[in-house]
Amino acid sequence: MRLLRSVILFYYDGFRGMTVGRTLWLIIAIKLFVMFAILRVFFFQPVLHGSDKEKAEQVRENMLNHHENR
């Protein structure tokens, strides 16, 4: 418990003492928000669905029958 508290305090003090780091963390937060909350959710959904067997069949179909049209 003491170790956990020390670790938390270490990060807490570190973040509080930051100067340039605040701007950087803001940029990181915005970047991660755009990537995970917008791009991932609305544009980058995995294309293959279902069980592994179903995914294998989708790939079989794509690779053996549909590649010509791309």
């Binding site: 950087l24 991660l32 990537m35 791009l39 959904q45 790939v59």
Partner: peptide, 21 residues
């Protein structure tokens, strides 16, 4: 490091969506 971090994750998004086969 801060600006570059996680830019590689985008490539993994692309693997799953554009390059699923």
């Amino acid at each position: 490091f801060a600006i570059g971090v996680a830019t590689g994750i985008v490539l993994e998004f692309e693997f799953g969506t554009n390059w699923s086969n």
